[in-house]
Amino acid sequence: MKFYFKIIFILFILFAFNNQRIEAGEKNKELLKVDWSFKGIFGKFDRASLQRGYQVYSEVCASCHSMKLLSYRNLAEKGGPEFSKEQAKAIASNFELTDGPNSDGEMFTRSAKLSDKFVEPYQNIEEAKASNGGSYPPDMSVLVKARSGGANYIYSVLLGYDNPPSDVTIADGVYYNTYMIGNKIMMPNPLSEGLVEYNDGTKATKEQMAKDVVTFLAWAAEPHLEARHKIGFKAIIYLIILSILAYFSMKRLWSRVEPEV
């Protein structure tokens, strides 16, 4: 009987997981899987990949996609791409933004500082829509967490452009994507072989660029992931040891109570 009880209990927990699986399971096709370095108990970001990923983002994506929750200082913070402070400053100074008002009551333009948020490509969502055929290129700050399937999904979409099957008609300005929900995407295929030139000499294949930029986006969505994994490991080990201590303390205490409990 007790055993039965336990089984049901375990099923109950598994169930909670499963519900999520079902929701996620409405996909068209099995996603491409990448062995991400940031998955798993000791998962960490690959610094070089993050730096390359930033390069892909800034050269390819940033003209349409904002990342308004990030600041330039983040690029130099621990657990991220870890550019040097000077590099991050140099990156920031490439961007201009409107500040003010000054003492004359006028707005002025200045170059961005470390403390500034990433400068957005458009003034507002309406402009972004108007410039992109009526469809808003989503902000990419938490994009990896905002799509079920996460990093694999975005990686798959980046590499999922294909000719539509014969039974599917696609309007102008819409593209066919194997992995996109509904298969229709407004974004033209952003990646092509050798599109960017990596400073570290890595060959810029489509797969490489997709992997790098998704790594960058995964960090952007979860900037404290490395700290989380590190503290988490310690916390769980600690809890297990303390549970064992508590267990033996309990056994010893209860040994005073006459048996048959």
């Binding site: 079920s148 490991f233 769980i236």
Partner: peptide, 12 residues
């Protein structure tokens, strides 16, 4: 909390 913080939430 540490290894699957968004598992029980919803991506949307």
């Amino acid at each position: 909390v540490f290894y699957a913080p968004n598992l029980l939430g919803h991506a949307d």
